[in-house]
Structures are given as structure tokens and as C-alpha cells.
Design a protein around this nucleic acid. Structure first.
Lengths: 295, 295
DNA sequence: TATCTGCTATACATTTATGTATGAACACGA
DNA sequence: TCGTGTTCATACATAAATGTATAGCAGATA
């Protein structure tokens, strides 16, 4: 019973999971609906399990199918990065490089760095994957990642950028209307912008700042960009990276001595990519650009 | 330019890399040589790179092909673990579980544990992957790993077993023939069994034991099982896990106070597998069995 | 209720991929 | 030097997978 299941089937399987129907998967994959149906049937036959419950509105994945999804996704991202590596081969900085970073970094910090990089290397294409989820570089969902924590996995090339300071900020006109808080407790009477879910960041802040708690947040969103926009829009007081806030004269820091958090910043890359010109160049550009940003 | 490269091609590609020829790959994959050739040709066409230089003795991989190999291997192991997970679905402890461990643990310690586990769960199949290489659980090359170091990767369920002591041992008849060394320096006149390459273990020992160096090894092999066999065969003095040595009355410890190294032992598993009955049962059995072994 | 849209499943034609057979080139050993 | 056992490449027949067309069902909409 040699593992003779066609890898194509997994691709169709993933397509159906993503699209929710045979027809949808067929459209997305560039095949036809009967073919997709046959692939699923063949896969179910080969694995000996039921993957979907058929219905006229689409295919409902079973628990088993959901359990298998991460594997299929891993295969997909690996295939994608194989292609990326292949098409980026050859001398010179060329091809596609995928960079993962938080949305704030991606929107506020990376654009000029990427712009300069592309100026120097016109044949280089850059894909930004903006998410807080720790992308698994080992799975090659991205080539290079900007992270706010020390990388723990082996097989990674990592360069420490330094610490990015985080502080509380508000627009001047907001403060002139509502007054500037002098103590942590005074924050209760303010519009404090913060997180919806009690994330690791919130717990860390609660520990380090006496008197602070999540209940103080009166404007809640887990989207960091939205928080930033709210601060800039004068909606209240919120957390912002100091270098970003400094660019905007309208923003003033609040309770600087109480709230000062440091984010360890690292740029990481899989060590296999060290000799890839495109990754090397991007890595170096990110390190240099981010160091300037931090300083 | 949608990524429309068939995943089957990658499988053939990997086959050719492993076997070194189209014919060999065809045999291994259960296809025919022309098909394998067509797959490679199609893949080269699609990627726009040359993967192999043809010759009548086989196909020589280019640098590019070698660079792509890890990706194809990742896909392969992911596909394999997808199958494993699928066929192990359903209630009850059934299916295949892959356990990674060092060869010594696998040969000397695991057998009775595995035997008892299979006694309790006859539908469970166990695959042992015996290697010192740190298997990447994230890549799912194995479901569960017995490791001699603290796991550093996230997304892992880890249980600490305790410390396994390592000591110097020799057969009594060897010692009666050659005398028992009383100091580290006296080892120079003995047949000391050790490692060929200067591994992390050797460097650690050189640091912790004054006067010790790799040059003392007069019987060298990187195969731990061979070292153990040499000790048991009375060929000299070597390192052995204390619990293993205690089983054999013919073995005596040497320089116990000088040489005493501790191996932190952990059992780890990907957290996704926590709810898999087969992995859960195996994990628990390993933890219990190893704890008894350590104690 | 009638109609539209989306879905799956089936029957049939066709394209595509695969296998079989064979030839030529090279390495190795008698 | 000549056979033997590899290998890859090509031509042709076959088997397999895919696409096309259509029927049937369910839910939404007017």
C-alpha cells in the first residue's frame, strides 16, 4: 500500500475547502466541476474517509476534512515558495520576495524602504504579507519576516534591530478639549483606544503599569491601523510607536513616564535563503531601513 | 500567470532527485520512464529553468534543482502526514503514529513501551524514526519526538521527563585486564570509545571535565549503538546512559565523580494532534514509560 | 406561484496523459 | 573488442482523465 495518492487531489481538496463548493473550486483552479467532484471522490476513496457531506448548496466539510486542512495548506504554501524560488533563480537581484510584517509596520514603515529597494533593483518584486500571526518561516509562507519578538526557531538567520518604544499618544486638540491626564487613574474619564481581546500585549501592560486594566478601553478594536487612525483623528488616547507619532506634530505624548513599552524587533529569514540574491538584498535593505527607523 | 503547475510534477521531480535517473524515479513512483521524462520537461518549461543536465548515465541536478529540493521534500512529508492523519481518523486509538527518537533510546528503551502500548491498542501501528537529527515536528516528519533538549518551538505540547544520567562504563573483564583508571589523565592509556566528529556533546564534555579532550578517544564512531556494543563487547571504556548500564551486571562505572552528564529529556508533540486519540495515547504511554525508565 | 440562480450528478465525446516498444548512446567487464 | 546492462529519446497505441451538455434539486426573489 504505497502512498500513491495523487498530489493533485490535495489541491482540489483545498480548493473545495476554500470555495465551499465543487463549482467554485473548479472555477478557482481552472478545471471543471465534474473533475473537481471526481478528485474529491477519488481522494475519499483512497483515504477511506468521508471528507464532505454533499448538498445542493455546496459541500460541507466533515471534521476530518477540517483536520486535514492545515496539511493541504502547508503543501500549497510550499509549492508556492518553490515556484517563487525557481523563478527568482539566476544571477542578479530578481524575482519575487515575500515579506511578512505587522500591519502597522507594513503601512507606516516599510513603504519607503521597499520603494528604495525597488529603485535599486527594478527586477525585484515584493509581496507584503501583513498580519500579526506569526508566520511560519519554516513552512515558507514568507521568505523574510519582521517580528516583534526574538525568533526561537532554529534554522533561521536573525538580525536584531533594536527596541521600538511604544507610548500613549493623543491629538493636541483632543487634549485641549478633555484635558491631559496626569495619573493612570485619570485615564478612566478619557476615551482610551485599545484592544478588544485581551491579548498578550494587554496582559503585559496590565502587569507592568500599576492601576491599568483592560476596562479602561472605551474604544476597542484589534486592528492596529484602526487604532492609529483613531488617534490621528482625535478620537482619544491610544498606543502608538514613538517613531511614528513623532512624524505628526499634532500628536502629543501622554503619561510618558508611566507608559513606556519596548518592542524587541528582529528581521528573520530561513537560512537556506542566505545565498539567494533577492532575499539577501531584501534582508539587508530591511535591516538598514528599520535601523534608521528605530534610531 | 496563475500558479497552475501540477503538484504531481514535484513528486516526479523529487523522485528523480532521489534516484538520480528518470528510469529509477519511474520505478520508485510506479510510473514509466517516458512519463517521468515528460514531467521533468513540463516542470522545466513551466518554471523556466533547467533542472537537470541529461546524460546517458542519468540526470545530474543543477544548482537550481538542489535549491528546490527542500521544498519538494517538505511537500512530500506533509502529504505523508496528511495521509497518516486521515487514516487514523475515527474514534478509538487506531492508525499510524510516527515517533522520532535517538537510536539508543529507540533500541534500548522504547521496545517494551511500544510493546505494551500495542498490547493495549492492537489497531495502533507505530513507526519509529531513529535519528539524532532534530526532526521538525512542525513539518510533520514525525508526530511525536523524544528529545534530549528543551523544545524551543512554539505550537508544541511538551512534557519534561527528567534527567537521564550519562556515565563512563566498561566491562569488568576489560578492567581486570587493563586496570581501572583513577584519574582523568589515566584514561590516555585506555581504549576510550567516543565520537568521530567533534559534536556538541564532545564540546560540552571538554568544558565540564577538566583534562578531558577528544584526542583521548581511541575507538571512534558517531554511531551511538556501535559505541554501546563496543562497551558491552569489552572493547574499552565509553559513555552509556546509566539506566541502560545498570541492566548489565558485567558493566562497571568508571570515574563516576568526574564524568556525570545529565540529559534533559522531553517528549514533544504538535499541539494540533492533542485531540487525536492515537497521538494522545502514544504520548501518554511514552511519558509514563520514560518516566519509569528515568526513575 | 413562477422564475431565476446556484449547486450536484450523470452520460457521452474528446482531449490528454500514460504505457509499450524500440533505437541509440555510453560504461563496464570479460 | 565484443557483449551486457545501464541510460535517455522517440513513435505509436492505448488507457485515463478531462470537458461538454444536460437533468434534477433547492433556495431566493418578485
Amino acid at each position: 500500500m504505497n502512498t500513491t495518492i495523487g498530489w493533485e487531489f490535495y489541491r482540489s481538496f483545498l480548493g473545495v475547502l476554500k470555495e465551499g463548493s465543487l463549482s467554485g473550486a473548479a472555477r478557482a483552479l481552472g478545471i471543471t466541476q465534474p473533475t473537481a467532484g471526481r478528485h474529491i471522490a477519488a481522494l475519499e476513496e483512497a483515504l477511506g474517509v468521508v471528507l464532505f457531506t454533499r448538498s445542493q448548496v455546496g459541500l460541507m466539510p466533515t471534521e476530518i476534512a477540517l483536520a486535514l486542512r492545515p496539511y493541504a495548506e502547508a503543501m500549497e504554501s510550499t509549492a508556492a515558495s518553490l515556484e517563487r524560488t525557481a523563478t527568482s533563480q539566476g544571477e542578479g537581484v530578481r524575482g519575487v520576495v515575500r515579506v511578512s510584517a505587522s500591519d502597522v509596520i507594513g503601512v507606516e514603515v516599510l513603504p519607503p524602504i521597499v520603494a528604495q529597494l525597488r529603485e535599486q533593483h527594478p527586477d525585484l518584486k515584493v509581496e507584503l504579507v501583513l498580519t500579526d500571526r506569526i508566520h511560519d518561516l519554516l513552512r515558507r509562507e514568507a521568505d523574510i519576516a519582521v517580528r516583534m519578538m526574538r525568533p526561537e526557531q532554529g534554522q533561521l538567520v536573525a538580525r536584531r534591530i533594536g527596541r521600538i518604544e511604544l507610548g500613549l499618544y493623543a491629538r493636541k486638540d483632543y487634549l485641549s478639549r478633555h484635558g491631559e491626564p496626569r495619573t493612570v487613574n485619570e485615564l478612566t474619564s478619557h476615551s482610551v483606544i485599545g484592544y478588544d481581546q485581551r491579548s498578550a500585549f494587554v496582559r503585559k501592560t496590565e502587569k507592568s503599569v500599576h492601576g491599568f486594566s483592560r476596562d479602561m478601553f472605551s474604544l476597542r478594536t484589534d486592528n492596529n491601523l484602526a487604532q492609529l487612525a483613531l488617534i490621528r483623528g482625535g478620537a482619544g488616547i491610544g498606543f502608538c510607536q514613538v517613531p511614528i507619532a513623532r512624524r505628526d506634530d499634532a500628536l502629543t505624548r501622554v503619561l510618558a513616564k508611566k507608559f513606556s513599552l519596548q518592542l524587541e524587533t528582529w528581521v528573520t529569514m530561513h537560512e537556506d535563503l542566505r545565498n539567494s540574491p533577492r532575499c539577501r538584498a531584501t534582508f539587508d535593505a530591511l535591516v538598514e531601513g528599520l535601523q534608521q527607523y528605530v534610531a
